[in-house]
């Protein structure tokens, strides 16, 4: 799976969980908070994306993730294992 494909999964879940958002406005360099997500929305997006990608990463290891791109990188590390 490529990084772009992982980002596509995250984007899909952002669109499913946040209101009034265009796909084109989701920049991987932005944080979900920048897009209007609250902390519960973020948990939902991360959890749904991990389920879809069949990953399990402890939340404690995601604490320093700021942007959507950084989240994709964390997922890629696990996919590569």
């Amino acid at each position: 799976m490529t990084r772009d494909e992982v980002i596509a999964v995250i984007k899909k879940n952002i669109l499913d969980n946040l209101e009034d958002l265009e796909e084109s406005s989701i920049d991987p360099e932005k944080s979900m908070k920048d897009l209007g997500a609250n902390s519960l929305d973020i948990i939902e997006v991360v959890s749904c994306s991990m389920r879809e990608l069949n990953l399990k990463i402890p939340r404690t290891e995601l604490a320093d993730v700021k942007t959507i791109g950084q989240l994709a990188d964390k997922f890629m590390e696990q996919i590569g294992k």
Partner: peptide, 16 residues
């Protein structure tokens, strides 16, 4: 493995 890295935050969703 690495059980101590996990917490109650990691088991909210249930696929059973």
């Amino acid at each position: 493995s690495d059980a101590l890295k996990y917490s109650l935050a990691d088991f909210f969703y249930n696929d059973s």
